[in-house]
Computed example of a mutant assay.
Amino acid sequence: MEQMIRNGQVFVFDLDGTLYEGTDHFDYYAERLLLDVAEENKEAFRIDYEKMKTGDHPVKIGKAYDVERDMVLTLDPFTLKVVKAENWAGEELSEEKKNELYSGLLAFNFETMIAIGDGWWLPFVAAKHYGVQKCYPRYVETKEYMVTEQFQLEQIPGVRQGLEKLKETKKIVLVTNSDIDDVGRLLKELNLDGIFEHIVTSAQKPSRTVEIFKQIIEQYEVKPEEVVSIGDNFINEIAPALQMGMSAIYIDPLQGDLSHDQLQVVKSLGDCF
């Protein structure tokens, strides 16, 4: 970790799940989406979502979901190629059929091919499975709720001080899928307003991750190995960075078994400082 921080010149941070923690907002999002689920499917939605949170469901963080085929896809974490495809009940496709449908790299978007990179996507995928057409309005409602007095963001001790110290000798950048209004509100709530010298909002990760990383490398005139990507979403922020020759710090409370020369796994961003 020390060598990675010493050698890095530009540090690219995610926002949600990285600069703050907690899962209550995911549950709130699920409850809002539940309002749009047909009455006969509401109980099944609740059961599936609870199973997802405990890891007792085919849908898990780190996988992908094919909305049109209603298939759950297990990915190689570093290449992001499909290694297994199964239906909602966990019944696996044959190797031949899997290769026929998913031979190349997936083209992730926010409608038909979903990268389940963090807790936001579990209720989203459940909603899509049960026929909800538009999830974004409920996401917006959740983000608005997160800056009310009824919700308390779980701030990570020492993060502002750590970022200020890092900023003395390094460049720090924020790249997030949240829109500019959400980012402004959240950074103010987290006492991180004004800390980043460059912010990219509505980043559309993972579909634009590589493009944005290339822009950052060009903007700061650094080599890929001098850039460190920090985030809690392996598909969005970590795998693309490693594929480009960058370093990465993956925030994983469970500290899963992942090994790569340019990768550090930590429980919390606070561990970095």
Rank of each mutant, 00 (worst) to 15 (best):
Q3Y: 12
Q9R: 15
V10N: 02
F11W: 14
D14P: 08
D14C: 12
T23F: 08
T23Q: 10
H25D: 10
D27M: 08
Y28P: 04
Y29W: 09
L33F: 09
L33C: 09
E39N: 06
E40G: 01
K42T: 05
A44E: 10
K53C: 05
K53E: 00
H57T: 11
K60H: 01
K60Q: 15
D66V: 12
V67T: 12
V67D: 06
R69G: 00
L73H: 03
D76Q: 06
D76R: 05
T79E: 04
T79P: 03
V82W: 07
E86Q: 15
E91M: 08
S94T: 15
K98I: 00
N99Y: 01
L101Y: 10
L105S: 12
F110W: 15
T112Y: 08
G119T: 07
W121P: 00
L122N: 07
H129R: 15
V132Y: 01
R138W: 00
R138Y: 10
K143A: 13
V147C: 12
T148Y: 05
Q150D: 12
Q152A: 13
Q155W: 01
P157E: 13
R160A: 07
L163T: 05
K170P: 08
K171L: 00
I172T: 07
V173W: 12
L174Y: 14
N177Y: 01
S178G: 15
D181E: 14
R185Y: 13
R185F: 11
G194E: 08
G194Y: 07
V200N: 00
S202H: 15
Q204G: 05
P206W: 06
S207E: 13
T209L: 01
F213H: 09
I217K: 10
Q219W: 03
E226K: 13
I230W: 10
D232V: 03
P240N: 13
A241C: 04
D252C: 07
L254K: 13
G256H: 14
G256S: 11
L258T: 01
D261S: 14
Q264N: 07
